[in-house]
Amino acid sequence: MSERTKHRWAMAIDLDRCTGCQACVAACHAENNLPLSDPESAAKGRAVHWIRVDRYYEGEFPEVKVKHMPVLCQQCDEAPCEPVCPVYATYQNAEGLNVQVYNRCVGTRYCGNNCPYSVRFFNWFDPVWPEPLQLQHNPDVSIRMGGVMEKCTFCIQRIKRAENDAKDEKRDVADGEIQPACAQSCPAEAMVFGDLNDPESKVSRMAGSGRSTRLLEELGTKPKVFYLQRGA
């Protein structure tokens, strides 16, 4: 693992607040220039959503319950996707982010294969945006061409921008100053982003809550996304 710097970015998702409305999914598309699918590619399993809301039904009618769970890249400390990349296109950066370097990626898809959370997506073709849909593109995020993997970045462009601003103003990044697109949009305020190295940050406090769990924790991936289970 690489050396740690000041920050260790993480997210906490309160499943008791989450309604499963998928505002986060649409916000992510808008922020990160995700490729558009079409009915045929979607049917082949090639639609790209960096964040999805898994829905599970438990029990049988009438005693049936539904569980919603937003799943994005878990930014694992021990990420299974990293050691299998032959070209270091995916690695752990100094702030604990599991980053994807698009122009290194040669498209072996080993990382996607090795990810237990199924949050990595391969670009089978170059993306197409019929004119003038491209006017909406976020200039802060590069467009990924065919042949490379992509996934949630925790909105690294927003992190960098806030860090640069703080540096310019000779101060630290304040807790809550950085909001990935999903967390910013969330109407129920279920998603909280912040620095795990700061014990006073909201995300640290939520990660330490009695309701806090991590997805597939038993695999030893040490995810940095914390799910607060429903209940008091």
Partner: peptide, 24 residues
Amino acid sequence: AIKKLEGNPLDPVSGGRLCARGQA
């Protein structure tokens, strides 16, 4: 060009938040 929509934090209804249809 408009790149992204967010809720207006000063708005009493959205309070800075937005749903999926609004994003789109």
